[in-house]
Amino acid sequence: MTKFFTSSIGQKFFMSITGLFLMVFLMVHLTINSLLLFGDGTLFNVAANFMSSNPLMKVVEPILALGFILHIIYAAYITLKNMKARPQGYKVASKTKASWASKNMFILGALIFIFLAIHLANFFWKIKFGTVETTHVEGQELHNVYALVAGLFKGWWWYNVLYMLGAIFLFLHLTHGFWSAFQTIGWNNEKWIRRFKTIGYIYAIIIAGGFAFIPLYFLLKFVV
């Protein structure tokens, strides 16, 4: 069992588990964000404040952070080790058929990471440590997170573009990551490889499409 943590399959097991966990998180995240599209923002504000004031979040937040950190640490470690397994490369680059995303997971991950840093600075940091204007819903004082989001997308059009780009990187990462995660934990066979690939594409389209649609919506609403 101790060897498991340092073995190649064990390390990939943690990539897979953390990846699956992050994929569940993305679904919750998108569900709440989709409320941005309805009404005057009250709905979203209520949901966002419910999430941030929920005592459960005190537990979930560190787990989420840990999920990201473990995923990134293992990603860097595994990628570096794999690069060392072929000190001298081929003159003619491989012409073997394999998806681009599957061969560039680390680059895609790094791009997502850069996006993530900007994204956290935009919202998470401001809500947590900065001052956010407040609004009143049914006599309750709430952070006006809707105004924060709308303000960002209203003020600088390239933020809208950046968020759409982030969604594209995520899409590519997920088209491979989704089925790969099931393969890594051994939950796969001849038939399910194809099924998981299809489900993965659908998942990636919904997630990335959803996250890309929100900045597009604000772009059309305010700028055009």
């Binding site: 190649s8 990939k12 794999n82 058929k97 998806s99 790969s180 393969q183």
Partner: peptide, 21 residues
């Protein structure tokens, strides 16, 4: 698997290149 790691082979990132060739 322990021997495979010890011998310096990389780990699987599920690209499927092996199967194709």
């Amino acid at each position: 698997v322990a021997k495979m790691d010890e011998l310096g082979f990389g780990s699987c990132t599920n690209t499927g290149a092996c199967e194709a060739e």
